[in-house]
């Protein structure tokens, strides 16, 4: 077995790129679920973000604007979900699945003129001094801005939920909407904002796929990434740090196993191919085995002030 052709610097760089879309979508969904709402429409919001981000980046020539537009598109799409589930009290599971279908259909409609077009991609950061550090520089410190943004977002979400009053309210709404309501908090408003945040994150994740990771627009290009994000939230037992671990494990092992194959490693391919799923689930289950790991108590339950 000759694995010398694998360049660890390039490998780590690829892993970070591969993990970012799932991480963005998963951290958003985690906040939504922390507020007690189960939005299964991540896939639909991601792909809408992917196509809108791509379209705007192509038309303006500025990938940054593409990301902003993608976040807005994801948030706007999630508003329909928020309206249906929070005001009309529709079933969250059914509405979320519907959102996925709408997103897939809408994106292929918007995306038709953009097939086969090249987009401006996000430039890699070139930080003076830092990016020039041998090994660590090219490995960790010279990616595009969204990689760092996603990691910063994870830290921000963690701090928000743990240390801020607003975060406490959000968690209270997710644990017991009735109690939060009795205390005078606006349950529906909190949930709508959480849903929009989740939509915006999913949109960013989608745009990262179409603008950086692939980079192109192809119909149906998320190909299940939204579902992976949903699964990671559950296996990470609704903890921000573990969501990051899960996303990096999944993205990392996906890239690693492809590299092992490309380098000709003598490991059964079927095993390599299944490894991202197996290892991610295994690791997250093990680290979640002890300590509190319950779902938010009000997850998926509709709330109305009259109850």
């Amino acid at each position: 077995m000759d694995l010398s052709s694998i360049n660890p610097i390039l490998l780590v760089a690829s892993i970070m790129v591969s993990a970012t879309p799932i991480l963005l979508a998963a951290i958003g969904e985690m906040v939504v679920e922390k507020a007690g709402v189960l939005n299964l429409g991540v896939e639909g919001m991601m792909i809408t973000g992917a196509v809108v981000g791509f379209a705007i980046a192509v038309n303006t020539g500025t990938p940054g604007l593409g990301f902003v537009a993608a976040a807005c598109a994801g948030a706007v799409l999630s508003l329909t979900f928020a309206f249906l589930t929070q005001y009309l009290l529709s079933n969250q599971v059914a509405t979320g699945l519907g959102l996925t279908l709408v997103g897939l259909g809408l994106s292929s409609l918007i995306g038709k003129p953009y097939e086969g077009i090249k987009s401006p991609t996000l430039p890699k950061l070139d930080i003076p001094i830092l990016s020039d550090i041998p090994v660590i520089g090219p490995m960790l410190l010279s990616h595009d801005i969204m990689v760092y943004f996603s990691l910063a977002l994870v830290a921000a979400v963690w701090a928000f939920l743990k240390y801020t009053r607003a975060g406490l309210i959000l968690r209270a709404v997710g644990e017991s909407a009735d109690s939060a309501h009795a205390l005078g908090y606006k349950v529906v408003n909190v949930r709508v904002m959480a849903i929009m945040f989740g939509g915006a994150c999913a949109g960013l994740g989608g745009a990262y796929l179409s603008l950086v990771r692939v980079p192109q627009w192809t119909e149906g290009m998320t190909a299940g990434a939204g579902w992976i994000a949903l699964a990671i939230v559950v296996f990470a037992s609704w903890r921000a740090g573990r969501v990051a671990v899960g996303a990096y494990l999944f993205g990392g092992i996906t890239v690693l196993q492809l590299n092992l194959q490309a380098a000709g490693a003598q490991v059964p391919v079927a095993l390599l191919s299944a490894s991202p799923y197996l290892i991610t689930i295994l690791v997250l289950v093990i680290i979640s085995a002890k300590g509190a790991h319950g779902a938010p108590a009000a997850l998926g339950r509709a709330f109305h002030a009259s109850n």
């Binding site: 990771r213 192109q216 290009m221 492809l258 194959q261 490309a262």
Partner: peptide
């Protein structure tokens, strides 16, 4: 799976 296909090409 465009993302995976791109990853494979890159690998």
């Amino acid at each position: 799976d465009p993302a995976k296909e791109a990853d494979a090409a890159r690998a």
